[in-house]
Design a protein around this nucleic acid. Structure first.
Lengths: 256, 256
DNA sequence: TTGATGCAAATGATATGATCTTTGAGTGGA
DNA sequence: TCCACTCAAAGATCATATCATTTGCATCAA
């Protein structure tokens, strides 16, 4: 009966979860992030029930989730009010996804990149004193593989290795909050790739710096690891900067 | 030693919201954070309906929220499974609160302090190039007030000024994610105060460093601002370290 | 014996309608 | 003018019913 549905649709960052709840949540979340529902505007439950043709249960459960990430506030006799961006839980992975998919993409990218710039050097510093022998070896090996992939011009492979490298450094930092940032970093890196902002042949410098970071960590030289990571971040930041300078021509946004 | 400022008692971290939803959410969240509900264990909805004597709707809405912060996963035919800590949304303010109130308090404090150590210097650096003239003046004034409060030995006032100082630096950084970290910083600082880990007379050094940070930012010397903040963080980190080294066992102030 | 097949119970997902509670706004008297 | 009271709108909660999916297990064929 049904046309053979190809299960190829494995979207990594877009689960496209089935189910009414996920569908409505996705739609409302996107709308709020995208500014289609402006802060201060008011919804009401029955209206949503009609609009999405789902039951009150579904709508209420979605609203509870949205409330928990600071998107809305439900008040009796008034309705459901959209809250300003300053109230949002900007660290919620779901919010990150929505923002990266919205018009505020560049702002989101900038924020996360700055966060990386702040955190990763310290993570490298901590990793130097906390990493295990085997992990350290793996890290050095990973940097070597990155070098190989870079030389070979294998972008795809380089991207994956890059993400894995930074993930391992964050993991080795021994701080679970840093680890959690890894998924944000991954979003940024893949985003950068999608927008073709990776040099086809990664800079020689970057390759060397990854190797430096890995080696410094293995030698337990926290200061050197930190400095090397700082350089790496500076370069990544510069690449990003050219990105949002070229893309955000008319946009002098950031209305607080 | 009741301070004579009554309206300050607006407990920002203990909303104690009335309402069934909040009550059940609070209880389950605490239980999961505290390890009373171990990862892998399974609940089912009807059981919860009975245990809390609330309706299905309330339970389901709570479960949706818990699922959105990675605490649980609902699977048909199985029940509601508690997920491991690695899946938690450790940046969710609510999660932070729960963890700070649980046995994992020290680990949480350590994580956030490390995060501060990483972020605040960079925030100071960014603030130096982004802050407005008036904001900069205010910041310097704030540092001066801190000095006065420190000299006077007014702990309470010093704490509030300290929190405000760091908040303004994070705000001035122009990065909304940094701003969001402010509430975590506030938790840490007030927590430190509650546990009597503030020196009654703040170190002369710390006072000077706050002044240095403020001045460097005003003069738009990002590098100097960063270095000063690094020193501040190092000192704060040392104080914290003595904290979680001393409280291997004793602290049991689980009071509300 | 073993593996595929299919049924049915368990359990979450969704729907529906009713009742309770809070609260903004209108109303009227002092 | 201003305060207290009333009413109704809208969310909060409840109770119940039905739908949909997963999975254990029994059945049956090779």
């Amino acid at each position: 009966m049904e046309p053979s549905s190809p299960e190829v649709a494995a979207a990594p960052t877009l689960p496209a979860e089935s189910g009414l709840h996920a569908r409505v949540l996705e739609h409302l979340g996107t709308a709020i992030c995208g500014g289609e529902l402006a802060p201060g505007s008011v919804l009401n439950i029955d209206e949503l029930v009609d609009r999405y043709a789902v039951s009150r249960s579904v709508v209420r459960e979605v609203l509870r989730v949205l409330a928990s990430i600071g998107f809305i506030e439900a008040r009796r006799r008034v309705g459901v009010m959209i809250r300003p961006a300053s109230a949002w839980n900007v660290f919620d992975p779901q919010v990150i996804r929505w923002r990266l998919a919205s018009a505020g993409r560049m702002a989101q990218l900038r924020s996360i990149t700055e966060l990386r710039t702040a955190v990763e050097p310290h993570a490298a510093y901590l990793a130097a004193s906390r990493i295990g022998r085997d992990e350290a070896s793996d890290l050095v090996g990973l940097a070597a593989k990155m070098w190989a992939a870079g030389e070979a011009g294998d972008e795809e492979r380089f991207l994956h290795l890059d993400i894995e490298f930074h993930r391992r450094v964050l993991v080795a930092s021994g701080n679970e909050m840093f680890v959690r940032l890894q998924e944000l970093v991954a979003e940024v890196l893949t985003g950068r790739h999608k927008h073709h902002l990776m040099p086809h042949h990664p800079h020689e410098q970057a390759l060397q710096m990854h190797a430096d970071v890995a080696q410094a960590i293995q030698r337990r030289d926290g200061e050197r690891a930190r400095r090397a990571m700082v350089q790496l971040m500076e370069q990544a930041f510069d690449e990003m900067k050219s990105l949002w300078e070229q893309t955000a021509l008319p946009d002098r946004s950031k209305a607080e």
